[in-house]
Design a protein around this nucleic acid. Structure first.
Length: 491
RNA sequence: GGUCUCUUGGCCGAGCGGCUAGGCACCGGUCUGCAAAACCGUCUACUCCAGUUCGAAUCUGGAAGAGACCUCCA
């Protein structure tokens, strides 16, 4: 049973819409995954986390979800390379490795980083190189229907013809005539009949390492066709959600609309969702700008722009503190502020266990739960949800201090839902460092705090402060409360 | 230049016509041997101009600034 009414922003309609799945209680989700020719960086984290939230929330509210996220491991050209050269092939030559070895290395690297960020693995993670046959078949379908042409061994999609029949630019808002009139004439690009046409299949030049046989030439598939072929294969000709970064709207997703409309005879995607981009200190992240920071550099603090290291949950929390459709700017200051907030919530979670129950509740916890759901139902408003969690934190701390009261059942309700939203839905990881097992540590800490308490009782402030300061240096924060001293690990 | 998006207090960031967002920082208070934590309170806002409205951060028009995409490729 579907328990919540979710509303999501559909790029196709430029509006928020109720999410109604094509098949009741089932949801199909396709997201453009990484191009594996380099270390995973911040730009990979945002879409992965955004759609991880979609995946988690759809499952939570009762959908059986098939989540497909592809890996692009064929046919990439360097942005700044003069001659067209496959990104993976180029890297392979430099490193003296097989192209697939390079791809595998970065796939592993990507997975490790995503695991740290607690991004759930998709249901299916298809690789473009493993679906060459499906792509060739789809190109053939488009040719058979007359919306593509062969030119010098390559196959191009006929955009003007598509525009006449179906209307081009639904997703990105591009107008074909404007595009044509704004296009600069480039030498040596006259294989295409029209500048707006895009490649379905490219004939490989001699130095191009990654190549496959096809009816038209030895070559490789055009970029856009892989997503259409793989989404059709695993989710069907019509599916619910297609996601990706806003930078992919044009030309990638617009081209996918063209391809699926022709090949499948209808538009495939019901809801298009796009996450916004990430900037660093207000600037676009780019290798040439010197602000290109990989995820591992964040985790290690190993980059000139980073004042210190930031753990994966800190990054995840920070990303979720902004709405996915807004730009997000990274800075040391903002990251540290996010960490403090996160630690506050972690501390509140631990306190829930120790709350005293009253006969009456001064707070309406059911209403609070409702507000949490409303935030998520409103196009995944995670900043709002996090604000509600901070409100819960205030309630928890106040109940502990005796300023507010909750009944035993309200405490349970609060505990259950705080953890549901914080851990299961937002995907934060419990602060295990101080909680998990570690009996010896627990006993040692009890002993140390006991000694310190003795010193305090004897007004031996020097010893008491020394213990506290040394523990602080060791990354352990001591909190003196009315019930005695408590401790927790920092980071 | 074209298309689109955005511009909220010291920083991050919700808000979608009237009601405190929230976090971080700062300041004051409670607590404490001192501190930290916690709680309470205070202070800084809606880029600018014009319009619609009883009422606008929120709608409309204009200006300025920022960003994304706009050849090939992914």
């Amino acid at each position: 049973m579907i328990t919540q009414e979710l509303t999501i922003y559909n790029t196709l309609q430029k509006n928020k819409e109720k999410f109604i799945s094509l098949i009741p209680e089932h949801a199909g989700l396709y997201v453009c995954g990484p191009t594996v020719y380099g270390e995973p960086h911040l730009g990979h984290a945002r879409p992965a986390i955004t759609f991880d939230l979609v995946f988690r929330y759809l499952k939570h509210i009762g959908y059986k979800v098939r989540y497909v996220r592809n890996i692009t491991d064929v046919g990439h050209l360097e942005n700044d390379a003069d001659e067209g050269e496959d990104k993976i092939a180029k890297k392979a030559r430099l490193d003296q490795l097989e192209p697939m070895e390079v791809a595998q290395f970065y796939i592993d690297s990507y997975h490790k980083a995503m695991d740290k960020l607690n991004v759930l693995r998709p249901s299916i993670e298809p690789r473009a190189s493993g679906h060459i046959i499906e792509q060739i078949e789809m190109v053939q379908q488009i040719l058979d229907k007359g919306f593509a042409y062969i030119s010098n061994g390559s196959v191009y999609f006929d955009v003007p013809k598509f525009d006449q029949e179906f209307g081009y630019g639904k997703l990105s808002g591009r107008v074909l005539e404007d595009m044509i009139s704004n296009t600069r004439e480039l030498d040596g690009q006259d294989e295409k009949r029209n500048a707006a046409d895009f490649a379905l299949w490219k004939k490989a030049s001699p130095e191009h390492i990654m190549r496959w046989n096809s009816p038209w030439s030895i070559g490789f598939p055009g970029w856009h066709i892989e997503c259409t072929a793989m989404s059709t294969k695993y989710l069907g000709e019509h599916f619910d959600i297609h996601g990706g970064g806003m930078d992919l709207i044009f030309p990638h997703h617009e081209s996918e609309v063209c391809q699926s409309t022709v090949a499948n005879g209808k538009e495939s995607v019901k809801y298009w969702m796009h996450n916004n981009m990430i900037t660093i200190n207000g600037q676009k992240m780019g290798k040439s700008l010197g602000n290109f920071i990989t995820l591992n550099q964040f985790f290690n603090g190993d980059h000139a722009m980073l004042e210190r290291s930031y753990n994966a949950m800190n990054i995840r929390f920070f990303i979720m503190q902004a709405h996915y459709r807004g730009t997000l700017d990274f800075s040391n200051e903002a990251l540290i502020a996010a960490e403090k907030g996160m630690l506050k919530l972690n501390a509140a979670d631990k306190l829930i266990e120790k709350l005293p129950a009253s006969n009456n509740s001064s707070e309406n916890i059911s209403e609070w739960v409702k507000r949490c759901y409303e935030a998520m139902n409103d196009d995944l408003n995670t900043p709002k949800l996090i604000a509600e969690l901070f409100d819960a934190s205030r309630i928890i701390n106040s109940v502990k201090d005796g300023h507010l009261q909750l009944t035993a059942s309200d405490i349970d309700l609060l505990k259950e839902n705080f953890r549901l939203f914080y851990y299961d839905i937002l995907g934060m990881v419990p602060d295990t460092a101080a909680v998990q097992g570690e009996d010896v540590t627990e006993k040692l800490m009890d002993l140390i705090l006991e000694i310190r308490q003795d010193a305090k009782t004897n007004k031996n402030w020097g010893v008491a402060d020394m213990i506290r300061n040394k523990l602080t240096d060791a990354g352990i924060v001591v909190k003196d409360t009315k019930e005695g001293a408590e401790w927790e690990r920092k980071n």
